[in-house]
Amino acid sequence: MKNKISEQDLLKIIKNTLDDSALQLEPYATHRLQQARQKALLPAKRDHKIQWAGAFAISLLVFVLFWHGKPEPALQMEDLLDDELILSDDNQDLIMNLDFYSWLESTENQG
């Protein structure tokens, strides 16, 4: 083959073969991919644990405010919202992928 075919032709043949195999995926894989897509496009559901933690925190706050009789709802509610935002999936993702985000920022700046 070395003498028969150029590198460019070889790459073209490989590409065509791979393209064909992707188009002729077995029905099982095609079906699973379709399901995966549908699942990904469903509106994101919040983590139940975080919801319960939030509900517990709000109950605790209401209890403490009621007990002390000095409610400062605006400030404390804002703190609570901040905590909730920190606990959200997106922000955990942010913390865990800081380098990825800095890459994103740099590409956005270039664009």
Binding site: R37, K39, D93
Partner: peptide, 15 residues
């Protein structure tokens, strides 16, 4: 492989 592709799809859409 199908699971990993699904995870990637979900992460892309959500984030």
């Amino acid at each position: 492989a199908l699971d990993l592709v699904q995870n990637a799809m979900i992460k892309l859409v959500r984030s």
